[in-house]
Write a protein that binds this DNA or RNA. Structure first.
Lengths: 160, 160
DNA sequence: CCGAGATAGTTAATATGTTAAGTAAAACTA
DNA sequence: TAGTTTTACTTAACATATTAACTATCTCGG
């Protein structure tokens, strides 16, 4: 008979565990982007921040962090470093003194427009590998798993 | 008509970019494991190292790093910290003075056996969310994408 | 055996990731 | 409205990630 399916009651070998698979694939993907971004002296995270602000310009720090999937303490450093390079500006909200609004600068807008097409290129490469159908399928599965994990926090926590 | 498919010649909104999807899903998954591991004062990376050694005990540093998908400079610190806690031991290879062999200790073996079942539990939860079929499908797509990315390094690099 | 070149680790310097505390400015409540 | 609680950051402390430079061995061809 055909190869038996993996047995989940035992531990899969490390190489094929889900966290590792996700990590390895992500690393492979991000590597491509990093090659482009490093040419502009940007880290992947810094680009995420710039990208997030592009289009919804003044954004408060916590929303920015959430969209970038970066924790507040990390975002703080990233934003400060970008601010030091005149790629971001910050100001305290007039309505709420606790909120800090972050926005792009003329310099970063130019930079973003220069980088975008290169990034689009990378996406095209990736699509070329899996094909649009499988790529959409992958997005779907990832989202389904993520939603499932975030919904059913622990055995018994539907809606408080 | 139905919703039109995403247009890849434009940039997907950040939230739905592939690196972000992979990151978000991985974070959601890893979060579950972290909850277990933190009870044992282990980080995700430290557990990866212990898991990798479990079964193929004395392993040289670079192979360990490769299997854990962790770069050498990082592995070094992780190993040293675990060594300081008597969870790992290191010795220079007799045959090759450049190689450092890392192995588990009695203490870490006990610890691993105690943690394993809890980790298996988490895997069961995850499988329960997607179901075995979709989970396997996900593994397949991730692997296919990863292999594709690693193979076609750049437009033109089949075999050197 | 000798020196060039390849290997396996280490260091160093920065940038992030993570968790726990600490702070100032709202929003709430008695 | 004073006191309490919540919110949005900030700091601090420690663990990793990433790239580059450096060191001790090895391997090899001559």
């Amino acid at each position: 008979m055909a190869a038996s399916p993996p047995k989940y009651h035992l531990l899969r070998d490390l190489t094929h565990s889900l966290p590792m698979s996700l990590l390895r694939t992500r690393e492979a993907v991000v590597q491509r982007f990093r090659e482009v971004l490093s040419q502009h002296d940007l880290t992947e995270q810094q680009w995420r921040v710039l990208r997030a602000l592009d289009g919804q310009d003044p954004l408060e720090t916590s929303l920015l962090a959430e969209q970038c999937q970066i924790l507040l303490p990390s975002i703080l450093g990233i934003v400060k470093r970008l601010e030091a390079r005149d790629l971001l500006s910050r100001r305290v909200s007039a309505k709420d003194g606790r909120i800090t609004l972050v926005s792009l600068t003329p310099g970063s807008r130019v930079m973003i427009d220069r980088i975008k097409p290169e990034i689009v290129e990378v996406y095209a490469q990736i699509e070329g590998i899996l094909g649009r159908v499988k790529l959409e399928q992958l997005y779907g599965l990832l989202e389904e798993l993520e939603d499932g994990l975030r919904t059913s926090t622990d055995p018994g926590n539907s809606v408080p």
